[in-house]
Write a protein that binds this DNA or RNA. Structure first.
Length: 873
DNA sequence: ATAGGGTTAG
């Protein structure tokens, strides 16, 4: 609506031309009252103008009412204390703040703001609904004879402007001025209290409640507001008591109760109240439906949800209610019935933004990222609606995970353009976006500049570091999150963000990757103290962490004590036993598992790996042959890869090769070929190794490990020239070998060592230590095996290169710094080479220490000159 | 006086 200026014709009565801008758009042009003569204030038709104005407002024709008002003033008539309330009400309803201000001007000129309480009160109401705080205060100040309505309107306006504290102050001043609060006042007060900080809100809320009892207020809306207030302040029990004791329950009481329970995540209870409502023959309306559906959604009560859907269609076509349809879509999506959700969506006649958003969220949350993006672009083009921050909170993750969508950073541009950059959800989603495209610094930048960091912000940032492999930073940030929590004002419960179960399961894989046992234990104790350890996901992550830190016993203990286990929990345990070379235990656990719960694809991958590392070829093959018929899991290309590894590692290379050739054609064979190549290196088979490498390099000429394995196979067989050639091709193709890297946790820090690396502060000491150690090893009978050294150098040099292998540096560091008797735990990013394996066996004997080395595939526990893997790995 | 759709995880 265009703004226009209204000058005051009565200020200079002789001036007859009127500068009203007639562009104001009205539905129907106003008709002046019957006579052609201009009415004057004392002519009989004056009252008919006023009456017309009032009747338009009364019957809801606000635009017409305003028209009459304008014509009236154009004609030089003064509005009176009947005209002003009518026009102000109309202005308020259509939210035309500009016109409101102009009418205000007229009111002031004519002195009604001080002389008529009714006019002043409607003015107050107008500013409360479409103005600002200053206007409200100014108008209220002017009223000399404040009545109860003035106070109530004033307080209600303050609430609408979210000035909760001020509203409460005014409640006190009202009583001080000897004006008795009534139901209207108490409704506003309940609303104000429910928006205060928790403890404070409850305290004042109880006073409001007591006040209502004192004045014997039994109005249903007072009771309903008090219920709502208690619920929002987390005092659901008080809310329920009010509900139960109140004799005058109406539909709104029921709805309030159901929605309050839903909002407090008390879904079972919400369902129970809903059922009671039906029993008491109270007819649910749209609000009821949209309050109870979230409960069905969270409890995944698809059946109930469908019944409610049917009810909504039968009764009054409640499905047309946008709240109802959004809740339905959400319910179906949460029950993973995306197709039904989409049908509901497609059949809607008018789609609200909430409908689109619910559908988009449903797609994203169920992993249908492409569908989410397609729908989003459709919405942008055809719906006539524009996205809001909620839309983008679903679209950003969809764009991040959608592989065929490339312009991920473009989303950020769009966000900025739309002005959504300061929305918390959007910012968190952007942090995730940048970390997943490897631009972790941008993530951190956004994170650092967040005005409010909630738990999700911290979790997302920590996950980002884990995703990018910066595990130390992840642990650092967890530490900071905790610090922040400790120093936080206990009164501000709403803004605290303690680590939750998601935080822990995000950061535990970081500990596992770093083999940071001490840190992992610290997190474990934190989980116990904060009652998070019983969470399935946390328990599974703890089990995994202990297993990957080499503490199989701890892993098993956590596993045994978990109150609930899911597929992932079991899979983690299989993997754990597999990495420790205990395939037999994994298999017997599997038999226990299938009595309780169905295995999935990952279960079989873990089990094959376990069998493979334990030489249990036949057990593994048997499982492979019956996984589909007995357990209903179709083998995938990954399973084939595992079985090729199983056969190959055991030296059954021909069978492994045959299995690859028999793979169903829909499968990619790369994984299987690379398993075979690895096996050819172990068993020194040049012919098959060449075949495998050829098949791999045709598609993956940029993977260093293929070149390295082939070249190692050649050198081990003495084909030095061929080995060198492979290495040259690799360099020519610009492929860089991933540098070997090992690490060890010491003194609350993870120390990293690269192969041939001299950057560590203790580097000199370590190398000196290793030189002396080498002499002692040789005395014990250690003979260096240089076959896996790629470089074509003389034997002496090779030996010193071997000494530089990163695992040896890490072990030496541990031996120098850690007290005797403490097990040395080292992790490595590549496989331990033959020579290091045999050297570490000797080291464990010479220094009398247990040494645990975890490489990419499994654990090696060295003790008294032996290794737990029995040289089979 | 009552109602909605969103971000993080294995």
């Amino acid at each position: 609506m265009s703004a226009f200026t209204l000058s005051l014709p009565f200020q200079t009565p002789h001036q007859q031309q009127n500068p009203i801008n007639k562009n104001h758009s009205f539905r129907s042009p106003p008709k002046p009252p019957s006579s052609n003569q201009k009415p004057t204030s004392d002519s009989p038709s004056y009252s008919s103008w006023i009456e017309q104005l009032r009747s338009h407002t009364r019957s809801g024709n606000f635009h017409e009412a305003i028209s009459v008002y304008i014509d009236m003033t154009t004609a030089g008539l003064r509005p009176n204390n009947f005209a002003f309330p009518a026009v102000l009400k109309a202005v308020t309803e259509i939210q035309d703040f500009n016109l409101g201000e102009q009418v205000h001007g007229v009111v002031v000129k004519l002195g009604y703001d001080a002389s008529s309480v009714t006019v002043a009160n409607t003015l107050l109401n107008m500013y409360g609904k479409c103005g600002g705080l200053n206007d409200v205060l100014k108008v209220f100040d002017k009223i000399t004879e404040r009545d109860k309505v003035s106070w109530n309107t004033f307080i209600a306006s303050l609430c609408r402007l979210e000035e909760w504290e001020l509203a409460l102050d005014m409640f006190r001043r009202m009583q001080f001025d000897k004006v008795e609060p009534n139901s209207f006042t108490l409704v506003s007060m309940s609303l104000a209290c429910s928006n205060l900080e928790n403890r404070h809100g409850v305290m004042l809320g109880k006073q409001v409640h007591a006040y209502s009892l004192k004045i014997g207020d039994t109005m249903s809306f007072t009771n309903n507001s008090l219920m709502s207030m208690y619920a929002k302040l987390g005092r659901i029990q008080d809310s329920v008591s009010l509900f139960e004791m109140f004799p005058g329950k109406n539909i709104i009481s029921w709805n309030t109760m159901i929605s309050s329970l839903s909002q407090q995540d008390l879904f079972q209870e919400a369902m129970a109240v809903f059922k009671l409502m039906i029993l008491e023959e109270m007819k649910p309306d749209g609000v009821t439906i949209s309050s109870v559906l979230p409960a069905c959604s969270h409890l995944e009560l698809l059946h109930h949800g469908k019944q409610i859907h049917a009810y909504a269609i039968r009764n009054n076509n409640l499905i047309e209610n946008s709240y109802v349809s959004s809740a339905l879509i959400d319910m179906y999506c949460n029950c993973r019935e995306i197709t039904i959700a989409r049908k509901v969506f497609d059949r809607l006649v008018n789609r609200s933004l909430a409908n689109w958003n619910a559908m988009l969220a449903g797609y994203t949350q169920n992993g249908f990222y492409d569908s989410a993006l397609v729908l989003f672009f459709k919405m942008m083009e055809f719906s006539g609606l524009s996205a809001n921050p909620t839309t983008m909170a679903s679209v950003i993750p969809a764009s991040v995970h959608c592989e065929s969508f490339h312009d991920k950073e473009g989303m950020h541009g769009f966000i900025v353009k739309m002005g959504f950059s300061k929305d918390g959800y959007v910012q968190n989603a952007l942090i995730d976006l940048y970390s997943r495209i490897g631009k972790i610094n941008i993530s951190r930048n956004i994170f650092d500049r967040l005005e409010i960091k909630d738990t999700v912000s911290w979790n997302t940032m920590i996950t980002g570091y884990v995703v990018c492999g910066f595990h130390e930073h992840a642990l650092d940030l967890l530490h900071k999150m905790n610090q922040r929590d400790e120093t936080h004002d206990q009164n501000l419960e709403k803004v605290t963000c303690k680590p939750n179960s998601i935080t822990l399961m995000t950061v535990l894989p970081g500990c596992a990757a770093l083999a940071a046992l001490a840190k992992g234990k610290e997190i474990h104790s934190y989980a116990i103290r904060n009652l998070l350890a019983t969470d399935v996901a946390v328990g599974s992550a703890l089990t995994d962490m202990y297993a990957k830190c080499g503490c199989l016993n701890f892993a098993r203990k956590v596993f045994d004590e978990m109150p609930v286990r899911n597929v992932i929990t079991w899979n983690v345990m299989f993997m754990a036993y597999g990495m420790h070379g205990k395939g037999d235990v994994a298999m017997s656990l599997f038999n226990r598992m299938v009595a309780e719960i169905n295995p999935n694809e990952v279960s079989f991958i873990s089990l094959f790996a376990a069998c493979s590392h334990s030489g249990m070829v036949d057990e593994g093959l048997e499982l492979f042959h019956k996984m589909k018929d007995k357990y209903g899991v179709d083998p995938t290309e990954d399973h084939y890869g595992c079985v090729v590894d199983l056969l190959g590692r055991a030296g059954r290379l021909a069978e492994a090769h045959e299995l690859i050739t028999k793979m169903p054609p829909r499968f990619k064979k790369l994984g299987a070929w690379s398993s075979l190549l690895g096996a050819c290196w172990i068993h020194q088979n040049v012919d098959l190794g060449e075949i495998a490498a050829r098949n791999l390099l045709e598609f993956e000429s940029d993977v260093a490990s293929h070149y390295v394995l082939l070249s190692n196979i050649y050198s081990a067989a003495g084909f030095w020239k061929k080995a060198t050639e492979v290495r040259k091709t690799m360099i020519k193709n610009g492929v860089k070998k991933e540098p070997g890297c090992s690490w060890i946790e010491f003194d609350d820090e993870v120390h990293k060592f690269m192969a041939g690396d001299f950057s560590h502060p203790q580097s000199e000491k370590i190398h000196g230590f290793l030189e002396k150690l080498l002499e002692r090893l040789k005395q014990e009978g250690y003979v260096p095996d240089t076959s896996c050294v790629l470089h074509d150098v003389n034997e002496d040099e090779k030996e010193s290169l071997l000494c530089g292998h990163s695992e040896r540096l890490a072990i030496a560091f541990g031996l120098i710094n850690m007290p005797p008797g403490v097990t040395i735990r080292v992790a490595k990013n590549l496989r331990v080479c033959n020579d290091c394996h045999s050297a570490i066996k000797f080291i464990s004997k010479v220094v009398g220490r247990e040494i645990v080395v975890r490489d990419v595939r499994r654990f090696h526990c060295f003790k008294d000159g032996n290794c737990s893997c029995g040289d089979y790995w």
